[in-house]
Design a protein around this nucleic acid. Structure first.
Lengths: 138, 138
DNA sequence: ACTAGTGTTATAGTTGAATAGTACACTAGG
DNA sequence: CCTAGTGTACTATTCAACTATAACACTAGT
């Protein structure tokens, strides 16, 4: 595992989101064992206390379950994972649409821009073409 | 002016983005005077030093211009403002699409979800109806 | 028992954001 | 000249994130 860190957001939150994404995307399945505190700390070159805090937060959100002396595991409750996924997606959507509206874009513009963006992404996926990042004017 | 602050991001960055949004959306026009350090500090109940840092960063990005002893003004260069707008929109789009893909959504899903979201928004705008936050499954 | 690997707790120190307070420099206007 | 309002600079302090290090508790396997 490797994460590109953003200095403007606490590390423990970034690692939290990283793990939650791995879970809701299916990369980590319900019941799967997640790395130990010391293992992940060494892997990410982060202090074990910071990882411990990350895991405590994940447990507070019921995303992982702890078996003392054994390790931590992804919650086996699929409904909880689905709820987390909806919450994370909802946050992304709200942040995006609200942000675009604040920049002066209208709803119709926003839909158009998203269509263009994923179209460019599809092209790069298929042909490896270089996108120019063009954005429709608001 | 009033801003709802997020504790996980430095205040000076949040105020920066707030002002940049006001500029690129046209709420603040090129050449407009922006609040003084002390005025904005009192208005937002924030320490003047923090506001000073905010403005210094905005000046470094050439978003505002300083006339010592007089005040600060929105840059008169429309091209610079347009560039900032594209940059901010591009960041939002990338963050959104990349984030949704990490959650396991396909490009087609993403377009559909955005259409639904703005449709709900339009309904609330017109009729004041209560949205249920429904999201299509990935 | 012993060991290795796990989670847990605790203390101390470093760093950067934010605050509090003060003082200085520049500009316009009376 | 003097005042009010502006930007600028500096020191000291508080607080949270993060680090460094160590110790303790639990579990499985030998």
């Amino acid at each position: 595992m490797s994460i590109e860190f953003d200095n403007n957001l606490p590390i423990y939150l970034q690692i939290m989101n990283h793990i939650k994404r791995q879970i809701v995307s299916g990369l980590l399945q319900p019941g799967d064992k997640i790395p130990s505190v010391r293992e992940l700390a060494a892997d990410l070159q982060i202090n074990p206390n910071t990882i411990q805090r990350t895991f405590q937060e994940l447990e507070r959100e019921e995303v992982v379950e702890t078996k003392r002396g054994l390790g931590r595991y992804v919650t086996s409750e699929g409904s909880k994972i689905m709820a987390i996924k909806k919450e994370m997606a909802g946050d992304l959507i709200h942040q995006f649409i609200h942000g675009m509206q604040e920049l002066g874009f209208k709803n119709q513009d926003i839909v158009t821009i998203v269509k263009e963006a994923v179209a460019v992404k599809d092209n790069t996926d298929r042909k490896g073409a270089s996108p120019d990042g063009h954005i429709a004017e608001g």
